[in-house]
Design a protein around this nucleic acid. Structure first.
Lengths: 251, 251
DNA sequence: CGCGCCGTTGATATTATTCAAGACCAGTGG
DNA sequence: CCACTGGTCTTGAATAATATCAACGGCGCG
């Protein structure tokens, strides 16, 4: 039932990942790795995990629609977008993932990826073979539960986006997006008020269900109103309160 | 680690659920239950599962936002809506679930429900205690994997809705919705061309990110164009091909 | 340098919402 | 039995929001 036991790894991958990966607000990688506990070492060899940190250049594709699924990826650094591609040519960005977050869950349900993941900047990921994760989940109750939460957080994230797409005006969506980015940057230890957009206006538009022109216009408007300062892809949040109120009360 | 072994149940809940629950297109309840195999009987008592079939009257609430999460629900018959409620009062229907489908996954990530589930008609559900599911998932590799797929299918469903909300026109969304309903009805063994909407125009609108007036107008238009026939909440699909084309090519 | 992609802004068109009125229907109480 | 009420649904007209079309400037890169 379990894979053959392997000698204690010379390098404890769990500790290693924990030590060097940044924290994420939605999913604490620390939890994910630590809760596995010492039992984990017994079934997972250091090499199997550690030999596969992979780099992707900006624009490179981590996986395409239909690619066989067999691993999740922890983002070491960099960021990527997750794109839904319908047969009809319809296209929608379904997610934006940063360091410390985990991508690839869109492949679990069908053993093949439903989306395409593309690096928005140079990035490095750690590959976590899915069958090993599942073994670990069976071995440790705590880890198993944490893993189930991870899977389910993916739907929570999607729900939040649905709420945005289904019930917010364009300006509220953009405000929401910027606040989300801000929070996540802060969680990574970066400034929460000044950050760089890694997506083009086009991509942001696709993510928010808007056209690129609308995104551009709104950024200009926000700047005109003193909510923020935009310079290309660099955004400086000036009035976080006003931006939050825009999302919540929409005036 | 495992709960104390319990004598073989007099009633095998797995078989029972399988025998009486209808099939669902997205998640085959049959798979969910059958893959557990005979091992399942060893840790799950018949009573613990079987004593909790619950009925809800139309309009009754299965769980509210913030309610502690400890079980999933298999719908025996009836249907329900899943509603997202933001603090700001913003509201969005995030899902519509029919017989054979499983609701409650929105609670997994935080041990508390993120959504509210409300019966759209009289319904009966089977309660599946989450910790027992997790035990089973640890015991059986096959079941565990199936369970992980179930969790992940919830995000797939949400992704599909995101694609709809973010990239389709109003008429395409409605067409998409009707086709989805049609398929799911067919999978349950009912007619795929004539069925009853269990939601009000208002609820359909919320689900599709539209106002109730728009939904009403579109239904009238579709009828005028000969795509379907509407009589209150009864819909008869007349030209499925045209409806599909509307979604895919949008003319 | 020139090309392609990116971003901005304006004018216009389209789409969907909002506001408003009235029909229908089921349930309720006089 | 009837009138009344609240919720639902339809439809029209006016309005607001967003997309589309178009032009142009800028930047990075071969």
């Amino acid at each position: 039932m379990l894979p053959p036991t392997i000698l204690p790894p010379s390098v404890d991958w769990i500790t290693v990942i924990f030590a060097s990966a940044p924290r994420s607000p939605t999913w604490k990688l620390a939890d994910f790795c630590l809760i596995a506990g010492p039992e984990a070492g017994a079934i997972l060899s250091g090499e199997r995990i550690l030999t596969v940190p992979t780099r992707f250049r900006k624009g490179a594709v981590l996986y395409r629609v239909g690619d066989p699924f067999d691993a999740l990826y922890v983002i070491r650094f960099g960021s990527c977008k997750i794109v839904l591609l319908a047969e009809s040519g319809r296209e929608q960005i379904a997610g934006y993932y940063m360091a410390g977050e985990i991508v690839g869950i869109d492949g679990v349900a069908r053993a093949a990826h439903k989306c395409e993941a593309t690096a928005l900047e140079d990035m490095e990921v750690w590959r976590l073979p899915f069958d090993e994760i599942e073994s670990l989940a069976r071995l440790s109750q705590q880890f198993g539960h944490g893993f189930h939460q991870l899977l389910s957080q993916e739907s929570e994230r999607a729900y939040t986006l649905m709420l945005m797409l289904g019930s917010m005006r364009a300006d509220q969506r953009l405000a929401f997006f910027l606040l989300d980015l801000s929070q996540r940057h802060q969680a990574l230890g970066y400034s929460s008020c000044e950050f760089v957009l890694r997506m083009t206006r086009q991509e942001i538009g696709s993510y928010l269900g808007l056209t690129l022109e609308t995104v551009s216009r709104l950024l200009s408007r926000f700047q005109r109103e003193g909510l923020l300062q935009v310079e290309g892809r660099t955004v400086k949040l000036l009035d976080r309160v006003a931006v939050s109120q825009l999302v919540d009360y929409g005036d």
